[in-house]
């Protein structure tokens, strides 16, 4: 199990990092030939940074569009954020200040994440319009995240695993050293699902996380009369 996961985690990390890097590079390289911010839009770069910040942290547009969905999405994403930060303790030799800060929130955050996911799934099945636009992959993605959350919470609250060994495994892995993982089926399942998530991330709608920052309707300044905006391929048309 130790060797299997050592290999799987290395491969998954590689796929996640390389896949995301390729996608981000692709987004960054593709020109935006026209100014298309959804107006009213900020007039300055600082204003755009604030707009993106509000979108990423507060889900501003979603709040305007659908309050209940905003609530479910917030509960899930905030829970997930805390859970992710807390998991850093398995990778760092001494626990950092941010991790220490969120440590007391671990259990409520885990619950929030699972509850948020369950509500999002329920909503997909219950609301006719949302059910119509839901495909198998949308359900599977929620189920995958839910299974990761539930197995994680089960280890946290019900069937404890040897987290000292888990930490040793991961700190060992980052130092390219093989240390044994507890032989625990629940842990195995949890880690397997996490690896799956990491592998599908760059090929799935989870790209919405980095993608938001490349969305021209949100990341452009409203200054087309003041500054001439010209994509390289459009500039070539002028040479003709």
């Amino acid at each position: 199990m130790t060797i299997f996961f050592a290999i799987l985690f290395s491969v998954s990390t590689l796929v996640l990092v390389a896949g995301l890097a390729m996608k981000i590079a692709q987004y960054a390289r593709t020109p935006a030939p026209l100014k298309i911010p959804t107006t009213p839009a900020p007039l300055t770069t600082g204003g755009v940074a604030l707009r993106l910040g509000r979108e990423a942290l507060l889900f501003e547009s979603l709040f305007r569009g659908n309050k209940l969905l905003w609530l479910f999405a917030m509960v899930f994403h905030l829970g997930l954020a805390v859970v992710l930060i807390r998991h850093a303790r398995y990778f760092e030799s001494s626990v950092g200040p941010l991790v220490a800060l969120v440590q007391p929130l671990a259990q409520p955050a885990g619950l929030a994440m699972v509850a948020g996911l369950a509500l999002l799934l329920l909503r997909r099945l219950v609301i006719e319009r949302v059910r119509y636009v839901t495909g198998p992959s949308d359900i599977l993605m929620l189920v995958l995240l839910l299974a990761i959350g539930v197995t994680g919470m089960a280890m946290k609250c019900l069937i404890h695993t040897d987290i000292v060994m888990v930490k040793a495994f991961f700190t060992g892995l980052t130092a390219l050293e093989l240390r044994p993982l507890p032989n625990d089926p629940l842990l195995g399942l949890h880690l397997l699902l996490v690896c799956l998530l990491m592998i599908v991330f760059p090929f799935s709608k989870l790209l919405h996380a980095p993608g938001l920052f490349f969305s021209p309707t949100r990341n452009q300044t409203d200054n087309p009369r003041e500054v001439r905006h010209l994509a390289p391929w459009a500039a070539r048309l002028e040479e003709k």
Binding site: A32, L62, V130, V133, G135, A231
Partner: peptide, 18 residues
Amino acid sequence: SKYRSLRVFMDICVKCGA
């Protein structure tokens, strides 16, 4: 390859239904 909007919008919809 010419329109970032199209490129990005193809990938990032989460089908949230908003």
